[in-house]
Each structure stands twice: as C-alpha cells, then as structure tokens.
C-alpha cells in the first residue's frame, strides 16, 4: 500500500509536466487557430523550456532563486497531495504558499514592472482564494470529510449537486493561468505597460522552472475539476478539458480588465454563485 502510494506520487511528479506541457502546446495551437493563425508546433512549450534551461544564469538578487524553487516545490507538492487524496484545505494552503513565494520573488526586485505585477498578483490571490476554499467546503458538505479521497466514496458525481462550482472554477482557472480578462499581473504575452509583470525579472533557467511549475499547476487545476466527475474517468477528463477550453475561448474573446473589476466579479458573482449553489442544495432541499 505504502509502496503503491509512493509510486503514484512519483508517477504524478514525472508525468504531470509532460501532460501539462502538451496541454500548454495545445492551448497555443488552439489560440492560434482561433486567431486564424497556424500556430506553433505542439511540442513548442518543451522547446521553449529546454532552451530556457540552456541559457546563461542571470539574476538580480539571490532571493529570486529561492522563490522560484519554493514555487516549483509547492506546485509539485500540491499535485502530489491531490493524487494521494490528502486534505483539500491543506492542499489549498500549499498552493497559496507557492503563489506567495513567487510574489515575494517579484517583490524582491526593485523594478517597477515586477513590483506592480506582484502587487496585482496579491490581489489575484485575494480574488480566487475564497472561491477555492468555498469549493472545498462544498465538497466537505457533500462528503463529510476534507480529504480528497473521500470524494471517491460518493456514488453520484459532484457535478450533479454542485454545478455552479464549475463556473467559479472557470473563473479561478482564468485568474490562475493568467488568461484574459484576468491577466492583470503578467501574462504569457508581453504587455505594453507591464512587460511581463511579475515574471519580468526572472530569466533563463529560473524562467524554465517557472514554466514547469505552471505545468504542474495546470494539471493540478484540471485534476481538481476532474474530482467533480469521479465516477467516470473519461467524463472527468472531458469535464476538465471542457473547462480549459472555455478558459481559452474567454481568453481569446475578451480584453484585460482592471483589478477592481476582477475583485468585483469574483467576490460578487463568484462567491454569489457558490453560495447560491449551497443554498439550493441545503436551504431548499434540507440537509
């Protein structure tokens, strides 16, 4: 049993970057197609990452390396914790730890771009964290336990009873993956006024590590969504990919908004939708 779990964790650590990278490649290809372009090859994210690792190590200060390393470690850890079916609340805080580490890395450099990016990333954290915690609470109310593995004992998939949380999850994904209209702290493309925001001062291998952390994060988020349809692996995967597709579409049809707008939408609409779902489930049907 113990050996099995370790193997599972190792498999997650090994394969998640491959899956995440491939999905990112598909994302870029899809985005290009939506813009009537041919787009880069599917392998492009891997080329980029290998190239970044082969570049010279330039830093601004030493803390950057620590921040990137902690960011990567906590993203990988949160995925491992999810795969092992650990406590979901702990998992969210591990995720937050990673974000805080990256934010501090951005703050540690006295550069206008990276600092403004970090300030905005803090606001992004403020926007999506309540939604994620509410989601975990909703799962708890359904299963009576905070552990991810308890979802597996449910007979019905969560999506039947918690459909609105898929909507809030799309919001969370848009913010976490820095997609429009929530790409306010830095995005995968350069911005006019912010360059690359929080990522501006990370270069070469550090940037490569950040890319890999992003892939872990992507797989983690998709895995989290797949929990909502645990009874059928295929349905779960399709649900997750469907959400990802929705995020990509929204990315391509919207422009970047301000942080005030983001907070308004996530707090009023996102928290509202979560509460509405919980209310419909427990307020009317009775517990």
């Amino acid at each position: 049993m113990e050996v099995e779990r370790i193997l599972l964790a190792l498999a997650a650590l090994l394969f998640a970057p491959i899956v995440g990278g491939a999905l990112t490649g598909a994302d870029r290809k899809l985005t290009a197609r939506m813009q009537k372009r041919i787009g880069p090859p599917l392998m492009q994210p891997f080329y980029d990452a290998v190239k970044l690792f082969s570049k010279q190590r330039l830093i601004v200060n030493g803390f950057q390396s620590v921040s990137v390393s902690v960011y990567l470690a906590s993203m990988a850890l949160s995925l491992v914790l999810l795969v092992l079916g650990m406590d979901l609340l702990v998992l969210l805080f591990v995720l937050a730890l990673g974000s805080v580490a990256l934010i501090l890395g951005g703050f540690s450099v006295k550069s206008p771009y990276s600092q403004i990016g970090s300030q905005r990333e803090v606001l992004q954290l403020l926007a999506y964290e309540p939604l994620l915690v509410l989601m975990v609470v909703a799962i708890y109310l359904k299963t009576g336990s905070f552990s991810a593995s308890s979802v597996m004992s449910l007979r019905q998939p969560l999506i039947y009873s918690l459909p609105l949380f898929i909507v809030t999850m799309i919001l969370v994904m848009a913010i976490k993956l820095h997609k429009s209209p929530m790409d306010i702290s830095g995005s995968h493309h350069a911005h006019q006024e912010l360059v690359r925001g929080i990522y501006t001062e990370f270069s070469g291998p550090q940037m490569g590590l950040i890319e890999i952390a992003h892939w872990y994060e992507l797989v983690f988020l998709l895995g989290f969504i797949a929990l909502f349809w645990h009874t059928n692996l295929l349905c779960g995967a399709l649900l997750a990919l469907g959400c990802y597709f929705a995020v990509i579409v929204i990315d391509n049809i919207t422009a970047r908004m301000t942080w005030r707008w983001m907070l308004r939408v996530t707090w009023l609409f996102g928290i509202g939708a979560s509460l509405l779902n919980l209310f419909l489930l427990y307020g009317i049907a009775g517990r």
């Binding site: 200060n61 805080v100 934010i103 501090l104 703050f107 540690s108 450099v109 300030q119 803090v122």
Partner: peptide
C-alpha cells in the same frame, strides 16, 4: 505578503 515584499525589495 505586501509587508514582506517591502522588506525584500532591493
């Protein structure tokens, strides 16, 4: 986080 950011900003 904001406070720590100020301390580290250098």
């Amino acid at each position: 986080t904001k406070w720590t950011g100020r301390l580290l900003s250098s």
